[in-house]
Design a binder for these strands. Structure first.
Lengths: 413, 413
DNA sequence: TAACATAGTTCAGCACCTGAATTATAATAG
DNA sequence: CTATTATAATTCAGGTGCTGAACTATGTTA
């Protein structure tokens, strides 16, 4: 076949960039007002670069739809010219519930459309994997509790967001595996929706935490950042271009199982040298027994063990100190690797373990900076957040809120 | 101050997702046709989900502007119904040159608007850092050479893309540091444009390679993938949502300087335990001297040393084999870490070093898969590419092509 | 030769945004 | 107290970009 008869192969990406996230001007206006708390039409014009005519027309639509309202009870700013009228979200139009399921304590938050927390609830549960319907019953108790506190009913709720540890398929709403569930490949979303009749948005816990930072925390003003959490394991979430990055295969971003040492310490995943095997609670606990001169038969909870270890370290026990110090060095390595691979604007470290300040000392931070190439630029910023247990559930509300917002605005025109 | 008088803090991301990459329908059509090589209007309709009316009108615009044309010399596909008319890019409308600057050999590629390579050129140069005007003179020689081969002149060129190693600020067109340049903080782009009168698009070499895979290689059909290259150093590029990810601070994605061992081997960056310190040519070379029983005074080039080492390993020298085997294991660790942190759909390994098949053996691949959590899903695909030296320069043409395309289409309406 | 199948065109119309002119509402200067 | 000025918001004609339905074009098949 001659050359000019052959089909040319072409060049360039075969797939166009995902344009699903291109939002209508109405939605951009709404989200800007919600993000600012309150904004005048002129604020909107400047922030979004639209014309004055559009601002009037589109805010009128949103006000007519009942999603926004003018604020007139507020004393207006003084100055020359016609005073600006502030616009705000009508909070009560849509309510969502965010839930964090974990090993020992579940928690739930009821949030209005403006992002205000209306009620919270938590529930102690026996640890270990359970059948799906047991988990759903626990969820039912939580939902009932938060609704009760706020004096609302299920019918008032627009959607529910749930975050849980394990392998979670956000898109499909299924849970291939979770330490909380006795069964594998669980169709969580369908089961939930048939039981509660409410839309459910499901994701893994690290993504929930990341969403919490993006919606309510230090990540709000950053377009690219990473969130690292140290709990039972070491998790990570990533925001790229102001959106949560979920990976191509829907696997979590498993910072805890990156290797920091060939043939290193044994991890609970069965491999060796995982970061988690130097940082997670079980990793510290197994060395703690040695440092505290416990006998193998003296069993106690990892939590109690770590607290004892921390007390010892603080009072000068060198063996105890080296345990924390080594963990801190490995944390620095893990963070440095994230910086080298992603070049984020900010890393947020979040988690219960915040109390063990050895892990969050300036020493760790400067070690991290030492381990990264900087070439004269400002080093990557690092923040640590000691938020309460409810962050996770709040992140889950953000997941539900964004979905409900999409629908509410699409329903206007 | 009362609570209802306080400005609410609001919630949600403060910055909207970057919408600069939202392309006009005209551009999407053009890029689809170029990506497919040839496409009928009906292909476009199906691929982009637009109406038939739009396809007619917009292709007519593009044809009128001289960017596309109908193909009539081709025998049409047989079948029922009116035969479809294929559309293709008019190749000669805009030409670009892509250039890769490196230590010993520069290379250049002249490409037409359809992505066809019209001419190539390369230039041996003395190694080591040089003043900017020396580099620009070398560039001038290259440009002259490719134009000469194709019988074109500078006036025919729409833009130039250049890739070089070092710290390159793509946005500003500056080079804070490069092993090729004697001076720091070099305003490369301005100097180039005043000398040649042509628009220049500059980026680091790893990004060029990644663009080459996105435009011409295995990455064309993937929306999220990583490219890893092993040369003097270990570089990485990342494509997220079909676009090159450049990081928040414009630093490269330095896979080579992620730490795989606390207090490990000494890296040329001055730190210890960098992946590069186990994989790069200098890392192999310094152990090669030992394995080959060379005396310290027997100096030879790293390249010759490695070739000798490879021959020895092939012929059964165990010391030589362990050098490659260890490098292979560390490569597996590095790749596994990328998989755990990014969850890409594909990793492409590319580089000259392809010849040392120890590094690309199935053994390395299976070691990598062993080092990643998979949870029953398909493991991350890995491909190795032994492309010639011109890949880099072709990637640079892609950089220039995409910019020229943006402008050409924006100029229509 | 009629019936069909597929490709492509034409055009009225809608959604969405801009830009200019206009109105609204305040502080300030004379 | 009125004119001036500054800022905010509205109104509306008009352009752009797309859709959807009716229509035309051009081949194969029965």
């Amino acid at each position: 076949m001659l050359d000019d008869l052959a089909q040319p192969s072409g060049c360039g990406p075969l797939l166009p960039p995902d344009s699903a996230h291109v939002k209508s001007m109405r939605q951009q206006i709404f989200e800007h007002v919600r993000a600012a708390g309150r904004a005048t039409r002129t604020d909107v014009i400047r922030a979004l670069g639209i014309s004055a005519g559009s601002a009037t027309a589109l805010t009128a639509d949103l006000i007519a739809a009942g999603l926004l309202r003018e604020v007139d009870s507020i004393p207006r700013e003084t100055g020359r010219g016609r005073p600006a009228v502030a616009i705000e979200v009508v909070p009560q139009t849509h309510l969502v519930i965010g839930i964090k399921l974990s090993d020992a304590v579940h928690s739930a938050v009821l949030t209005d459309f403006a992002g205000n927390t209306l009620a919270t609830a938590s529930l102690r549960t026996p640890a270990g994997p359970k059948p799906l319907d047991v988990i759903l019953t626990e969820v039912a108790t939580l939902v009932h509790d938060v609704l009760d506190v706020a004096g609302k009913s299920t019918g008032d709720i627009a959607a529910v967001g749930i975050g849980m540890s394990g392998i979670v398929d956000h898109q499909a709403g299924t849970v291939p595996w979770s330490p909380l569930l006795a069964q594998r490949n669980c169709d969580f979303s369908t089961a939930f929706q048939t039981r509660f009749g409410l839309p459910l948005y499901l994701d893994n816990d690290a993504n929930m935490l990341t969403l919490a930072e993006l919606w309510f925390g230090a990540g709000r003003a950053k377009s690219d950042f990473a969130v690292v959490t140290i709990e039972h394991g070491v998790g990570m979430g990533l925001v790229i271009d102001n959106r949560l990055y979920r990976g191509a295969r829907g696997m979590g971003l498993e910072l805890g199982h990156t290797k920091v040492q060939l043939d290193g310490a044994l991890c609970r995943c069965g491999q060796r040298g995982c970061l988690e095997a130097y940082l997670a609670d079980y990793a510290l606990a197994r060395e703690a027994a040695t440092a505290l001169h416990h006998q193998p038969h003296e069993r106690q909870s990892a939590h109690a063990l770590l607290d004892a270890l921390f007390t010892q370290a603080k009072s000068g026990n060198e063996a105890a100190q080296t345990i924390f110090r080594r963990a801190g060095r490995y944390l620095a390595v893990g963070l440095a690797n994230v910086v080298q691979l992603f070049d984020p604007a900010l890393i947020i470290i979040s988690g219960e373990r915040m109390q063990y300040d050895y892990l969050y000392a300036d020493e760790v931070l400067s070690e991290m900076h030492r381990l990264t190439l900087n070439d004269g630029r400002a080093p990557c910023a690092v923040e640590t957040h000691a938020w309460g247990d409810l962050v996770w559930a709040r992140g889950a509300t953000a997941l539900a809120l964004s979905a409900v917002t999409d629908q509410a605005i699409a329903a206007i025109s």
